[in-house]
Nucleic acid binder design. Structure first.
Lengths: 157, 157
DNA sequence: CTTCATGCAAAACATTTGCAGCTGG
DNA sequence: CCAGCTGCAAATGTTTTGCATGAAG
């Protein structure tokens, strides 16, 4: 992960450049997204922001996320049977490793994919823009407590 | 794609084996999922089934899909800003190439990924179970009519 | 016949939107 | 001061659920 503090300041700079107002709520959301490597969902961001600014509404969180998404500063990760998760640390596509039990998501590196997009484009005629690669499995923690409840034992992915 | 007819019969056999009733609606859903390589969504399946059996309800479509999912006979593909899509032709994970404009999805082969799951498991301690690889881009059709409306010009993925 | 499946309507969710009032610059 | 935010509440769209009726075996 790149330096989270400078990542935050970068986002702030971009907001300023485009003439968007630097409200406390926006700054809080930007900070959480740039500082955390845990790929939080909207509700989680909401709870954290509410800690500092109790009047904050969930709608504002969604609006802010939407803005940052449009600006290309955060990446949205959608899953079946789960809320969207957000990644503000890096903006280029990179693989994720997702625990199907506790939903923890970590970033991984897989070099093998370079050139594949180009090959596909040639073969299929598609103009390939980006890709997404996710690995699903059990994190070390959840392997140990297989039979006990994990923090969030929801439907499987 | 494997032989769609035998795929359909395979699903029917499994349903019978497990003691599930072979209702016309179920058979219709199973047939659509096994015969089509277009990765339809629930609404699309619904429309097609309704063609033959007009009394069919969307709830039944969802219930049937859910059943086939549980049995491992169809794979659910979730996307942000889009409905879930279903793949009944093959049950093993394989990459998809998705048009971000008209939402067409085609299956592709990418050999490069063999062994990567094992490597990741070693590096991270995760017990990797499966993965998902999607490529996004414009299909040949939508490249041509870039400025005109495609059939379904929804929000971008 | 007996159970399981269907179809309807209502519920459940995550996410989005409209709008009156507030506030950053 | 005033365009652009916020927060509320209501709307949206997809998927799920409860329950009475109907049909498969």
């Amino acid at each position: 992960m790149s330096d989270p503090i400078s990542r935050f300041e970068e986002i702030v700079k971009r907001l300023k450049e485009k003439g968007y107002r630097l409200t406390p709520q926006r700054l809080a959301v930007a900070k959480i997204l740039s500082m955390s490597d845990e790929h939080p969902g909207a509700e989680e961001i909401y709870r954290k922001v509410k800690g500092r600014f109790p009047s904050t509404s969930l709608a504002t969180i969604y609006k802010t996320i939407h803005l940052l998404k449009e600006m290309g500063e955060v990446m949205e990760l959608g899953f079946p049977n789960d809320t969207h998760r957000y990644d503000g640390a890096r903006s280029h596509p990179h693989p994720h490793l997702i625990c199907t039990k506790c939903r923890k998501i970590i970033d991984v590196d897989v070099p093998a994919l370079s050139g594949v997009s180009e090959q596909l484009a040639q073969k299929t005629g598609y103009q390939v823009v980006h890709h997404r690669l996710d690995f699903f499995g059990l994190c070390p923690n959840c392997q140990r407590r297989k039979r006990r409840a994990c923090l969030t034992d929801r439907k499987s992915l």
